[in-house]
Amino acid sequence: MSMMRRALLLAPLVSLPLLTGCVTATVDEMVFNEPVEGIGDASVVILGRRHASDYETEPDFIECVGDHISSRDNSIEVIDELDFINALYPWFEPRTAPLYPEDLEKLLQQPPVAQRLAELRTQYMIWIDGSTIRTDSAGSMTCGIGPGGAGCFGFGTWGNDSDYEATIWDFTNRAEVGRINASASGQSYMPAVVVPIPIIAPVQGTACDSVGDQLLQFLSSEY
């Protein structure tokens, strides 16, 4: 068989659409002092908790939540996590970052911190704590190369659970003003008859959208 003929046979396999598995999500919201008309010209920063030894809140999840908010209300200025940490080094490194709202008063007594926050116009800081983990897997798959070509046969499945908590701190009032819990779970599949076809459950993406939507209700004047 010619190389041209092989390319024509493989083309439909490469262009297979991405299939998605089912995801279930739950959201709990508790807001104490919700802005009435958005946050105006103030800015917000979203940070991931990384002080635990057994896991860290994924940087790509923090970026996803920030992008979700900015894309739906471009009047909200979301400061990049890394830019914020670098601008206030070393006060927001994992070992030195404030763990409780009561720590804000002491933190803002540091002139460099107060000055930099004023320059950034940061009113709200949102801590996100959590992670996405694989819960189980089953099945098997074998791949090989023979005289007729390469191929894979088998079936695999695995589950993922996402669990995140977003805590909203107000620098002006030196207090916690809201809290959101979002969880999602789903099952992904990988059947293979010659070519593996991933059917991925967008668990982390669903959790990101859930957290982002709830934060928009707090921050945006359009929701």
Score class of each variant (00 low, 15 high):
residue 136 D to A: 15
residue 98 P to K: 04
residue 42 A to G: 00
residue 34 E to T: 08
residue 51 H to R: 01
residue 157 T to M: 14
residue 173 N to E: 00
residue 145 I to Q: 12
residue 189 Y to V: 01
residue 58 E to L: 10
residue 54 D to F: 13
residue 135 T to E: 14
residue 170 D to Q: 11
residue 47 L to S: 07
residue 166 A to Y: 02
residue 202 P to L: 01
residue 29 E to S: 13
residue 127 W to A: 03
residue 108 L to W: 11
residue 201 A to G: 04
residue 173 N to L: 06
residue 53 S to D: 12
residue 93 E to C: 02
residue 171 F to Q: 07
residue 126 I to P: 01
residue 79 I to L: 09
residue 203 V to R: 01
residue 210 S to L: 04
residue 214 Q to I: 06
residue 164 Y to D: 04
residue 112 P to E: 01
residue 140 S to N: 11
residue 197 I to T: 03
residue 195 V to N: 03
residue 3 M to V: 12
residue 105 E to Q: 11
residue 85 I to C: 06
residue 42 A to C: 10
residue 18 L to P: 02
residue 177 V to P: 12
residue 87 A to N: 06
residue 184 A to Y: 13
residue 141 M to I: 15
residue 94 P to E: 00
residue 54 D to W: 12
residue 67 D to E: 13
residue 25 A to R: 06
residue 215 L to W: 04
residue 69 I to M: 08
residue 217 Q to D: 12
residue 150 A to K: 07
residue 110 Q to L: 04
residue 169 W to G: 07
residue 40 G to C: 04
residue 157 T to P: 05
residue 146 G to F: 02
residue 101 P to F: 04
residue 4 M to Q: 11
residue 105 E to R: 00
residue 208 C to E: 02
residue 56 E to P: 13
residue 82 L to T: 12
residue 25 A to H: 04
residue 51 H to W: 14
residue 69 I to Y: 03
residue 81 E to I: 07
residue 130 G to M: 01
residue 77 E to P: 09
residue 117 L to C: 05
residue 220 S to H: 04
residue 178 G to N: 11
residue 25 A to Y: 01
residue 101 P to V: 02
